[in-house]
């Protein structure tokens, strides 16, 4: 087990956000966290990563309590990709090299540079290595921050809506890259998402959240018309087509039944 979250609660001064959240994640698991806006998905990731300090509960990484780990040790175990990207105006190579920060004592060594090179290669960013970050598109930027997270050599990726600002092609490319990298390196992934269909393509487990609490944890079987209506208040139908699941909201389903192939 890579991560164990037990009874996690968090409150902002004005309002509580997370209530008694518990779950575990094993090596190579891909968990998608689904729920409405403001339900605490991003806060959950920040509490796991100690960007925010939980009010109660325990987070164990590889059996060790996060409270007992230094910030540098947490950074060596968890690679985090935030929802909003504001990379420093440095080259792509230097941006990815920042992922080695938890390991660098005074200056980057040969090993650090090799790891950065490999991460760039894995994400097909070698041609962009000397470009400055403000010269990149949204999809390229997303790849850079994922490469930076890879350079941390973590056991767990926390990805906060990594596809929210991308077009459909970049969404699929990004998801595919994360999946490949995670599988190849045995990295567990927790990803927050709004697109249920994309989550169904990507994840093997799901956490459904409602009002800061866990509504359900499990495999694809928990993504049902009933659970979607309970969480989002939207009527939907979940189909299984050729072994893949797809969710269609009810008001769109009428259009779907009168569909015409174009």
């Amino acid at each position: 087990m890579i991560l164990s979250v037990d009874g996690l609660s968090f409150s902002y001064p004005s309002h509580p956000v997370l209530h008694d959240v518990s779950f575990t994640i094993g090596q190579s698991d891909c968990i998608a966290v689904l729920g409405t806006n403001g339900t605490g998905k991003s806060t959950l990731l920040k509490c796991i990563n100690r960007i925010l300090k939980p009010k109660a509960g325990a987070v164990l990484i590889d059996g060790k309590s996060c409270d007992a780990l230094s910030r540098l040790d947490i950074a060596k175990n968890i690679g985090y990709v935030s929802q909003y990207q504001s990379l420093p105006k440095i080259t792509v190579f230097d941006s990815v090299l920042l992922g080695r920060k938890p390991y660098i004592k005074w200056d980057a060594g040969e090993k650090d540079l090799t790891i950065v090179n490999n991460a760039l290669k894995e994400l097909e960013l070698l041609d962009y290595a000397m470009r400055y970050t403000d010269e990149l598109s949204g999809g390229e930027l997303q790849k850079v921050v994922i490469a930076r997270a890879i350079a941390q050599e973590p056991k767990l990726f926390l990805l906060d809506e990594p596809t929210s600002s991308l077009d459909i092609k970049n969404q699929l490319d990004t998801i595919s890259v994360i999946k490949t990298v995670a599988r190849k390196r045995g990295i567990a992934v927790i990803v927050t998402m709004h697109d249920i269909n994309l989550a169904l393509r990507f994840a093997n487990r799901f956490i459904l959240m409602k009002n800061g609490r866990i509504f359900g944890v499990g495999g694809k079987e928990i993504i049902t018309a009933k659970s979607i209506e309970e969480i989002y208040g939207v009527k939907a139908t979940v189909y299984e087509i050729d072994g893949s699941m797809i969710m269609i909201p009810k008001n769109h389903e009428a259009e779907f039944s009168a569909r015409k192939e174009v």
Binding site: S70, S82, S86
Partner: peptide, 10 residues
């Protein structure tokens, strides 16, 4: 690169 990113890098 921002507060959250810096914290996540230790």
């Amino acid at each position: 690169g921002g507060e959250d990113v810096a914290k996540s890098l230790g």
